[in-house]
Simulated assay, not measured.
Amino acid sequence: MTLSNRLSFTRSLARCLLGLAGLSALSGCGLLIVGGTAATTALVATDRRTAGEQVDDQTIELRVSSEMNKAFGDKARLTGTSYAGRLLLIGDVPTEADRQQAVSIARTIPKVHSVDNYIRVGDLTALSVRTNDTWITSKVKSQLTTTENVPFRTIKVTTERGVVYLMGKVTAAEGELSAKVASGITGVNKVVKLFQIVSRESLITDPDKPAPVTDSSSPSATATPTAADGGGAQPMPVQ
């Protein structure tokens, strides 16, 4: 299947799924009117991205995979995770020049608003390490799902060499709680928060519209400064 066909199929499938989700969202909006408990449940259970953002993020991730493969082939291992147009790049490349090239490529992809560059220069990560990363990701997701007041449906979890990256639209309190939960999982070395901080009031008053977000490059929005400029920012442990 060509890239064009894959993107078309992905968009069509996403729209169908989001359309079905929209039917449930109508009842969720009704819950917001009833009272505080219902409102909390609805906020935690929903993805806070718009339908368009969700489709765009899927398209971005497909494009990253395709473009990086064309540029580097088997000599590199690169993965992109997008949340509302904010793109996290992780993986391994042979040289610093390759690292910078990967960031440049990512910036040309439509709908990418910023790039967090956590690409490592070095040999390809061993399969055993990647398998362990997959296990850690599943454990973190499972723990977030069962933790009260964590909006797990709107949080993306990515693990690379024991470092857990968290993305999503969350309140400051939700972000701190999510990071604390992730840091308690066996095998997690560090947690990097790449959240977009939103106010609880904005989510309750108009949950169907994009909530205003705090500048994600500010210290209050993330635990680690972003590497949007392609610099060598390193993950920092959760305090």
Rank of each mutant, 00 (worst) to 15 (best):
D98Y: 12
D74Y: 04
T46I: 15
V64C: 03
K70V: 10
L23W: 05
L23N: 01
F72Y: 10
A106R: 02
A102Q: 01
L31V: 06
I90A: 11
Q58L: 15
G52A: 10
Q100K: 12
G35P: 08
E61F: 11
Q101Y: 04
G91T: 03
V55F: 01
Q101W: 00
A84Q: 11
G80L: 00
S65L: 13
A51P: 11
I90E: 07
R86P: 00
G35S: 07
Q100M: 04
T79R: 05
V55P: 00
Q54S: 04
T46A: 08
R49P: 05
P94K: 10
E67R: 12
A102N: 07
R63I: 04
T41E: 02
A71C: 12
R77E: 06
N69Y: 12
S24W: 04
T95C: 02
S65N: 06
S24E: 01
L31W: 09
S104P: 02
A38P: 01
V103P: 13
R63V: 03
L26Q: 12
E96C: 02
T46G: 02
L43W: 00
R49S: 02
L78Y: 08
D74M: 10
D74T: 11
T50K: 14
R77I: 10
E53F: 12
R48Q: 11
L23V: 08
T81L: 00
C29A: 15
V93E: 00
G85A: 11
S66T: 12
K70Q: 15
T95Q: 00
T40Q: 11
T40E: 14
G30D: 09
Q58G: 15
A106I: 07
S27T: 13
A102E: 03
Q54G: 01
A71P: 02
G73H: 02
Y83E: 10
N69M: 10
R49I: 05
D47A: 11
C29W: 15
G52D: 15
L43R: 04
A102P: 05
D98F: 07
A39E: 13
G30T: 13
G85T: 09
